[in-house]
């Protein structure tokens, strides 16, 4: 009898075992950055989820959230130095680094519950559960940011801004190029 109880306890402990928790340590500080942000995309996404996969939970829960995010991209300003500038009288040629995505910002007030359907035997989505869904949406947005064309827009805007700035600084013939990943300019 006691062996049977022990066996069941062992099975129960095995079933409830959780995976190793990833401990993250964040160093928080004031940091110097050198970003020239030249493009911002405001994007929308619908977060759609259905919680009906756990076998012992009777009934379904569905939720629809709307989410607005802002993506910012630009160029690293610190990499511009004399080696990337060629000056001949009033003619200047400048080579800039390629644009990168600097930030994805989802404001808390821009995540709204649009629809919720809760089965009779289920509780509504808690704040923590809603947050977990928003985190997944954030990851999806981060992964597909490049495909939106923000980097190309950021480079075009950077070229326009720097051309205008150099014109104000007295240059008449201005050429702004972007580096290849290998180091040459296009």
């Amino acid at each position: 009898m006691s062996r049977t109880i022990l066996y069941f306890m062992f099975c129960f402990a095995l079933a409830c075992r959780s995976g190793p928790d990833a401990e993250t340590q964040v160093i928080l500080s004031l940091k110097e950055i050198n970003q020239l942000v030249t493009a911002e995309y405001v994007v929308n996404k619908i977060i759609k989820a259905s919680d009906d996969n756990t076998w012992y939970k009777i009934g379904d829960r569905k939720i629809l959230l709307t989410c607005e995010a802002s993506l910012k991209a630009g160029i690293d300003f610190s990499t511009i130095n004399t080696s990337q500038v060629d000056i001949r009288n009033k003619k200047i040629s400048l080579t800039l680094p390629h644009a990168t995505l600097f930030s994805l910002n989802i404001k808390p007030e821009d995540i709204k519950v649009a629809y919720e359907e809760i089965g009779m035997l289920r509780s509504s989505f808690s704040a923590q559960e809603r947050d977990m869904l928003a985190v997944q949406a954030e990851k999806q947005m981060q992964q597909s940011a490049d495909s939106l064309g923000i980097l190309k827009t950021a480079e075009t805007n950077a070229r326009l801004f720097i051309t205008q700035f150099l014109r104000n600084a007295g240059y008449e013939d201005i050429e702004v190029k972007f580096e290849y990943a290998g180091g040459n300019a296009n």
Binding site: K31, E32, I33, V42, V43, N44, K45, L148, N157
Partner: peptide
């Protein structure tokens, strides 16, 4: 679900300090 672009803005912000 797909991501829809709502607005594109042209900026020229020189970001120099970040506080985490």
């Amino acid at each position: 679900t797909p991501i829809l672009i709502k607005e594109i803005r042209e900026l020229a912000q020189l970001c120099t300090i970040t506080s985490a």
